[in-house]
Computed example of a mutant assay.
Amino acid sequence: MKQTFELDTRTGMPADLMHLLEKYPREVWTGHRNLGATARFWLQRHDMFRELGEAMQDALLQHREGQVPLDPFRRWFAPRLQFFLTQLEEHHQIEDHHYFPVFVRAESRLAPGFELLENDHEVIHEDLMTVVAAANRFLAEETGGGATPPDAARWAGDAYADASGRLLDRLVRHLADEEDLIIPLILDRGEAAIGI
């Protein structure tokens, strides 16, 4: 059976791109002398996206189960969602336009992996747009009172939950694959030698 590398179905990067990960598995990353400030910051950003995404999913679930009233939920949720979406879009733009070209120059054999990651960014960007639209509908329906059908808020909540769940599932896969491609390269060459 042929392995697919679509974001929804892949279980990792293509094996022919993982030669450096075999040399530098995740267990050695934290203590490695070549894990510099840029790589540490980048990994922290990835962890922030994972943690904030999970926190927003938890908050949504608590609200939809009636554990958190609408006003406190909105005050907590809306600014965090805005921050998450804005920061993620900026993060991907910086990677596409600055870091990925630098990494490809450092190791051209990894170019297909960076093309795959750039394609992920396009898919995730479309997900971001879908999440924004679904969130706006969801929050508008939640505050609509008697002017909307009784099930409209639930349906809008379901649509938002589906859209945000899809985004986060894809993002988690993408972040792991990106790390598996980039961190071993940094450990192998060092940040200064790569040019970051």
Results as ranks from 00 to 15, higher is better:
64 R>F: 00
143 T>M: 10
132 V>Q: 13
149 P>Q: 13
12 G>R: 09
5 F>M: 07
171 L>M: 10
166 R>F: 01
64 R>T: 11
171 L>N: 09
56 M>I: 11
139 L>D: 03
25 P>Y: 00
26 R>P: 00
152 A>W: 02
174 H>W: 04
26 R>E: 08
6 E>L: 12
152 A>K: 05
126 E>Q: 14
174 H>I: 06
4 T>E: 11
27 E>T: 10
39 A>R: 00
171 L>S: 05
157 G>N: 03
84 F>E: 07
191 E>M: 07
1 M>A: 13
15 A>R: 13
134 A>E: 04
170 R>T: 01
69 P>M: 05
122 E>K: 15
141 E>Y: 01
92 H>D: 01
84 F>I: 00
134 A>M: 04
5 F>W: 13
34 N>G: 03
18 M>H: 02
11 T>F: 09
107 E>N: 13
179 E>D: 09
96 D>H: 10
109 R>E: 14
111 A>W: 04
193 A>N: 10
66 G>H: 04
180 D>E: 14
170 R>V: 03
93 Q>Y: 08
125 H>A: 15
17 L>A: 08
82 Q>A: 15
80 R>A: 01
122 E>C: 06
99 Y>G: 00
161 A>L: 04
121 H>L: 05
76 W>R: 10
165 G>F: 00
9 T>G: 15
22 E>V: 11
148 T>W: 00
51 E>T: 08
150 P>N: 06
22 E>I: 08
106 A>C: 07
124 I>F: 04
190 G>L: 04
99 Y>H: 12
2 K>Q: 11
46 H>I: 07
187 L>C: 01
187 L>Q: 04
64 R>Y: 00
40 R>L: 05
32 H>M: 03
86 T>Q: 14
157 G>V: 02
178 E>R: 02
83 F>H: 13
148 T>D: 01
156 A>L: 02
76 W>H: 12
24 Y>P: 06
195 G>Y: 03
33 R>D: 07
106 A>K: 04
73 F>E: 03
17 L>D: 03
23 K>S: 07
29 W>D: 03
180 D>H: 10
195 G>M: 00
119 N>K: 09
109 R>M: 09
141 E>H: 07
26 R>K: 11
190 G>W: 02
117 L>I: 08
105 R>T: 11
47 D>R: 15
131 V>R: 03
83 F>M: 14
61 L>H: 10
68 V>L: 09
3 Q>L: 13
102 V>C: 08
156 A>G: 07
